[in-house]
Design a protein around this nucleic acid. Structure first.
Ligand code: MN
Ligand code: MN
Ligand code: MN
Ligand code: MN
Lengths: 218, 218
DNA sequence: TTACTTTTTTAGTCTTGTCTAAATATATTT
DNA sequence: AAATATATTTAGACAAGACTAAAAAAGTAA
């Protein structure tokens, strides 16, 4: 239906739209896609011709309903494949993104449906990110950054904000994974670092760490 | 590493090489790939530059060792994914080829290894075709066409020669699948049709059917 | 061997997606 | 408001992969 490149642009615009009330800028897309602004302009015209984006010269773009629907379907495929790789093929959560970037472009509605069923209809991917349903709705979950908790509070790890390999490997090394309970024992106001308990282990983490971990509080 | 298009050409040449002692002709490739001879010539030059084929103008092509290795790895991926689709996602054997045509181009050695393990290292795909090992060797199996059996002989169905949807659906409808035992009750010499027993059912099949079914005889 | 047919290659064009360099529009300072 | 800086678009080019039409080579028949 759409080329890999078109799909990647739609996905990038979709993600950028969540952080800007205005239309998404050409430069923002260029940075996200690791490409040049002029290439973005070219593609925006093509996507506009296909009614996937609303594009006005110099004003940035927004996705049309069709564009949103398409982007959600690609994100759905990406995250379902990530679940597959972790749950069925024993990949670790820092290895799956690159492969899912390829698998998300495989076109077969039946394949996605069967995969979804095979995985028992997961609602969240290995990084805690929501998997949109077929109609494009994203499951919501109350979650807060670990950095916002006060001493004495605790919660269950349900997601990561930073999904870089180095961060994920750090978490692995320290026994932090989705589903793990984390309690804040003490907070150092000077630098925002936290003393926390992960399982039975006590450790101290920086603000950078705590502001990239999502918890579900009770 | 190589583009989807390059991989598809390598695969086509690989399959055509098995039937011709000479180099594979431009027209043969064009027909197999559903493209024009001039497009094939263009691609052969590119593949020759990359040392994947031995190409001499007007003389046809053969794969180099590197070309053979690459082709085998694509076929390996294609067939492993076909097994996955049938065994894990409950697709029928007539539905998997198209999807595998896409999945075979996903690049990740680790993914293929894990998939292989997940499927318990299958040696043959859902159509009975051999799955090459990592080093490119194809498992061999003694098999004969059902059409070559005499009255009174029998064997186990281990593969199909024609893998078209219509043929596979015909087999499904008549209870013929890999692993099923088929006995030849009688042969009509006039048109080569056979009276056979499939499980407990007796039926008569044309020469066209029997010459597309592979059996392993005892 | 010459004439005719078929196969293969070449020449030139097109589309997609990318790039650089230059032009133009918008935003920010002074 | 004018000058300057930044963002965006345009113009022109390129590579990959495909196509058509024409030329050239190879194969076949008379
Ligand atoms: Mn991902
Ligand atoms: Mn993810
Ligand atoms: Mn197949
Ligand atoms: Mn097959």
């Amino acid at each position: 239906m759409y080329s890999d490149s078109e799909e990647n642009y739609l996905k990038a615009i979709f993600h950028l739209e969540r952080f800007s009330k205005e239309g998404v800028s050409t430069n923002a897309i260029a940075e996200q896609m690791q490409t040049k602004a002029s290439s973005v302009t070219d593609m925006l015209k093509k996507l506009a011709d296909k009614k996937l984006v609303n594009y006005i010269k110099y004003q940035g773009v927004t996705l049309t309903n069709q564009g949103k629907k398409t982007a959600a379907s690609i994100i759905r495929k990406h995250r379902l494949w990530e679940v597959f790789l972790v749950e069925k093929l024993d990949f670790s959560w820092d290895e799956v993104h690159e492969i899912a970037e390829q698998l998300e472009h495989i076109a077969s509605e039946k394949l996605v449906d069967r995969l979804d069923k095979h995985l028992d209809f997961p609602k969240f991917d290995p990084h805690g990110d929501p998997i949109p349903s077929k109609d494009g709705t994203f499951p919501e979950r109350n979650k807060v950054l670990l950095s916002t908790l006060k001493a004495g509070e605790s919660g269950i790890c349900v997601g990561v904000k930073d999904t870089s390999t180095s961060f994920l490997k750090f978490l692995d090394k320290n026994g932090i994974a989705l589903g793990i309970t984390i309690s804040v024992l003490d907070r150092e106001e000077f630098d925002g670092s936290l003393e926390i308990k992960v399982g039975d282990e006590k450790m101290t983490i920086s603000q950078l760490i705590s502001s990239n971990l999502y918890l579900k509080t009770n």
